[in-house]
Design a protein around this nucleic acid. Structure first.
Length: 371
DNA sequence: GAAACGTGGCC
DNA sequence: TGGCCAAGTTT
């Protein structure tokens, strides 16, 4: 009797597939912190933190957030700068901004009670189809399939789906198949088990098919093409950018010139010193001369560039940034606005409470160039 | 609906 | 090194 899925036998085989998978999961599951609760707030927080993020990287942040904001009301009362500071280093900062926005909506519209209606959950900022399904199934045991990267990979192999899974068409098809396969009587366990399988055995590079609890159902395993799947669309490579930062400090008054990044570019909501972007990295000697001659900086008294760092290269998902930090001193006035309302002189003590991109925390720590 | 959004780890 | 991947969402 064969166990490979085909359109006509999906119903009959799904129950056996679910049983094998769930028995395996009960034996091998990892006791992750967010698996020990059904509090929708904690589930929600963990899911947002883990979007495109490894468990090892996200776990400390999860504990920090639960400790700092034990309830939705606590989170909803927070300042955006505070939330971003706690999120500092985790990346994809719109997640933090949207988390706060959504907490405010849940407080104001739902009296701090997390909604259980799929459409209402999906409307919350930062919650898409995956996260909505995760919250509803893990917190309330509702039968929505969690289709994340792990599950997509498992599904693509089980059904030997050979087109790109990340095209519009591919996503639709994977979602359809995942929804056909879900165990409607045990969605919480089933979804966890599918994700665990993708995370531990049905991994991208070297899938452990001999150990797989559902290998008999898997068409890719049967065909010997598991490690060729899933297929994905080609990616664009990172664009180069060149940043020259000028960190102006008043050493007497312990002030620092900073601005909050706004607009559509990277790192929205995070802080930075003066940034000049160019088409290639400047030669430091020339650049320092330019700065000290620049008429835009005339309003900054006693400006003197004292040193600079080596170039720091920082890779983002779609950008490759080559940056240098110039260290300068000047005479500043606390809370005064400089350079067309953009930059503000902030106490260094207070600046420590603001969020900076990793590139800048790296540059701040970097020694001066020897020449 | 393709492209953008961070960071860290692996080979 | 450069590319890929990681519990995706937004525009």
């Amino acid at each position: 009797m064969h166990l490979l899925f085909s359109p006509s036998n999906t119903d009959r085989l799904a129950a056996k597939f679910q049983q094998r998978l769930e028995i395996w999961y009960a034996d091998v599951f990892r006791p992750l912190p967010w698996r020990a609760t059904t509090d929708p707030y904690k589930i929600w927080l963990s899911e947002v933190i883990l979007q495109q993020t490894r468990i090892d990287q996200g776990t400390d942040y999860y504990h920090k957030f639960i400790e700092t904001y034990p309830t939705i009301n606590d989170l909803a009362s927070a300042k955006e700068d505070e939330v971003l500071k706690l999120w500092q280093g985790l990346g994809y900062y719109s997640r933090a901004r949207n988390l706060l926005k959504a907490a405010i909506i849940v407080r104001d519209n739902y009296d701090c009670t997390f909604p259980t209606d799929y459409k209402k959950v999906l409307k919350l900022p930062g919650i898409g189809p995956y996260t909505a399904a995760a919250i509803l199934s893990f917190a309330f045991n509702m039968p929505y399939a969690t289709v994340d990267g792990n599950v997509s990979r498992v599904i693509s192999r089980v059904f030997a789906y050979e087109s790109a899974i990340d095209s519009t068409e591919g996503k639709k098809e994977i979602d359809r198949l995942a929804t056909e396969l879900i165990d409607k009587s045990e969605p919480r366990i089933y979804n966890n088990a599918m994700m665990e399988l993708g995370a531990t055995l049905c991994v991208p590079d070297t899938p452990q098919c001999p150990k797989c609890p559902v290998k008999d159902f898997c068409r890719a395993n049967y065909m010997g093409i598991a490690e060729m799947l899933p297929k994905k669309q080609p990616k664009r490579k990172a664009k180069p950018r060149f940043f020259e930062y000028i960190q102006i400090i008043d050493p007497e008054k312990q002030l620092m010139l900073l601005t909050r990044r706004e607009g559509k570019d990277i790192w929205k909501g995070l802080y930075q010193p003066i940034l000049i972007e160019s088409n290639s990295n400047e030669e430091p000697g020339m650049f320092i001369e330019q700065i000290e001659q620049d008429k835009r900086f005339e309003e900054i008294k006693e400006l003197k560039v004292n040193s600079f760092t080596e170039i720091e290269t920082h890779i983002l998902s779609h950008q490759k940034i080559m940056a240098r930090l110039y260290r300068a001193t000047a005479s500043l006035q606390e809370d005064q606005i400089y350079l067309q309302g953009q930059y503000k002189a902030i106490k260094i003590e207070d600046a420590n409470k603001l969020a900076f991109p990793k590139l800048l925390t790296n540059l701040f720590e970097k020694p001066n160039s020897l020449f």
